[in-house]
Nucleic acid binder design. Structure first.
Length: 547
RNA sequence: GCGCCAGUAGCUCAGCUGGAUAGAGCAAAGCACUUCUAAUGCUUAGGUCGGGGGUUCGAAUCCCUCCUGGCGUACCA
């Protein structure tokens, strides 16, 4: 990467001078200044290090500048020192022109990293199979999938997992609710259970089950018949919705099958016990999380002798470790934040490495329609499903909006402002840039093949250099975005790139009489197309050929 | 009460491992289509970074405190 190259050059020059041998080069970091007058890269190294040498920052900065200038490296166009001690670097245009080739050569791989190979498990969505996916799951799905894509792009071996809560009270309620709906369908008296599921989808499921079996004795089946049927049905619906969003999972982890119908719970309980983490109180079993970083202890086995949800979660997460992952990522709704401390403590108790366990909390989205909050109305049992949203808005729009804000900020998603043709619609702005590029590329075949013989030094317009700089920054953005699991950084980056492009497009004609210049500019556009495609792909958004 | 997230331009939000004059989009005012797609471009205006302390060469960013909003605080899952 260009940034690393700059840093390495500086280190190399300074390391050759004994005067600087005391300096801690790990503190040398480069940033891209907001103000372009401050160069392409800037470092506060002198400000940070002057204390150690007991000199003034400006003096140290000037010393460093002198050493670097002595090397007369054509890589740099200009290096300057500014108050109170910044050193600013301007990179030569021919360096940028040279690096541009890299984008075209790497193509779909540009911005990616390889060789990491670490195994990462990312668990997201994991909505209970007791209803359809709704708005509350949408942001989780979009963010989780984008993070998975970024991690994969950054060289991880990624497994996407969906945890199916197909066990426990809620499933009993689901079965009983369905049974009631079947009775309703058959024209019998019916009553939904206390706290049961009121959604219309159960009416549909009841209809299907009745029409497929065509017998009044359906109701004689035992509970698991109803729950199994409902879960299968809902799971299919969930998969369908996710598919519409371009999201797929590698692993569907059934709580019933993997946690309860196996020895996992017993094994983990023994392990907790072996680590002196188990005790009995008031006829229940508790885990001593308070000794391992949490404020409280928690019940893991209730007086009715069944395990708590928390215990099941401990078992599940211990199993994640056992399956040999180097990184375990949980994408959780912010309403689950209180589980983090206790789960961390439990994993700590079980001697699992906490550095491997990461949580991304997703704050709630408020859906605004006609100026009113329509996010969800639990009381009436009505909520906006993903299906509803996709009926009205295309997948690209929905996914982009969901990842265009930092996950830990609540945000308002105003549907009216996002309609097609609206000005408040960044995704179309970006896709339009991509479509304009395709339009030009499809008109011209010059420079579409090999880069040999193309004179990229002809790309010397200010905006052309700006575009190249911005494009070369893509790798850094991806890395940062991936490390912090923040897809919104890519969304912002792409908007910025699109803005520079649209401006360039307006000012500068690509297909001109000068064939050599046209060829060079076509290479520029090919690169842009690659960045837009790769970037949008990380967000699960398409880059249309035309609009 | 305790815990987590947030409070930055009229609105929606970036920036938060401390850095140089606080950014973007929308909305507002004005301008530009005989041009490779105007779903575009170019101007202008808009801010005590919730309040108050502190840390230091330097704070939207770190610490303390208070205020406001959201969420959570089960032998439910």
């Amino acid at each position: 990467m260009l940034k690393d190259k700059v840093a390495n050059k500086i280190k190399e020059f300074l390391a050759n001078d004994s005067k600087f041998s005391d300096l801690d080069f790990s503190k040398l970091s480069l940033s891209i200044p907001r103000n372009t007058e401050h160069g392409d890269y800037s470092t506060n190294f002198a400000l940070v290090s002057s204390g150690k040498l007991k000199t003034r920052p400006m003096d140290l900065a000037r010393d460093i500048l002198e050493i670097i200038n002595r090397n007369k490296d054509p890589f740099f166009d200009n290096i300057s020192v500014e108050e109170p001690g910044f050193i600013n670097f301007k990179i030569s245009n021919n360096v940028y022109q040279e690096y541009l080739k890299d984008i075209v050569i790497k193509d779909a791989k540009f911005g990616s990293s390889t060789g990491n190979g670490k195994k990462v498990l990312i668990e997201f969505v994991s909505a209970n199979p007791t209803g359809l996916l709704h708005l509350g799951h949408l942001r989780n799905a979009a963010v989780g999938d984008s993070i998975a894509r970024m991690l994969k792009f950054s060289g991880y071996n990624v497994t996407k997992e969906y945890y199916i809560n197909d066990y426990g009270n809620q499933i009993r309620l689901l079965a009983e609710s369905l049974k009631a709906r079947i009775a309703e369908n058959l024209g019998l008296d019916f009553e939904l259970p206390e706290g049961g599921y009121k959604g219309d989808y159960l009416i549909d499921i009841a209809k299907e089950i009745v029409s497929s079996s065509n017998s009044n004795s359906i109701l004689d089946n035992d509970r698991s018949f109803f729950s199994d049927f409902a879960i299968e049905y809902l799971k299919k619906e969930i998969i369908k919705d996710l598919k519409e969003l371009d999201i797929s999972f590698d692993s569907w982890y059934s709580e019933k099958e993997k946690v309860h119908d196996s020895d996992l719970l017993l094994e983990v309980r023994e392990l907790i016990k072996a680590n002196n983490g188990l005790y009995e109180k008031e006829n229940a079993e508790w885990i001593k999380t308070s000794d391992f970083g949490d404020n409280d202890d928690w019940v893991i086995r209730k007086t009715d002798n069944t395990s708590t949800y928390f215990m099941n979660d401990i078992a599940y997460h211990h199993d994640k470790y056992r399956r040999g992952f180097d990184l375990i990522v949980n994408i959780w709704g912010a309403d689950h934040h209180s589980h983090i401390a206790r789960l961390n403590a439990s994993m700590n108790l079980l001697s699992n490495d906490l550095n491997k366990l990461k949580f991304v909390l997703i704050q709630f989205v408020r859906l605004i329609k006609d100026g009113k909050d329509v996010s969800m109305s639990k009381r009436s049992g009505s909520y906006t499903t993903i299906k509803d949203m996709l009926d009205e808005f295309n997948k690209d729009l929905v996914r982009f909006m969901m990842v265009s804000r930092s996950s830990d900020s609540h945000f308002d998603f105003d549907l009216d402002k996002c309609r097609e043709g609206s000005d408040d619609n960044p995704i179309f702005y970006i896709q339009y840039a991509s479509a304009r590029i395709n339009s030009i590329l499809s008109k011209n075949k010059e420079g579409s093949g090999s880069l040999d013989g193309i004179d990229l030094s002809l790309l010397k317009e200010e905006q052309e250099i700006r575009l190249i700089k911005k494009m070369l920054n893509f790798s850094d953005v991806v890395l940062e975005s991936s490390n912090t699991m923040s897809p919104h950084k890519i969304a912002f980056y792409l908007q910025e790139l699109a803005k520079i492009f649209h401006s360039y497009y307006k000012n500068t004609k690509v297909l001109v009489d000068d064939l050599e210049l046209t060829k060079a500019r076509i290479v520029l556009l090919r690169s842009l197309k690659i960045i837009f495609t790769n970037g949008l792909n990380l967000l699960g958004v398409s880059s249309p050929e035309r609009m």
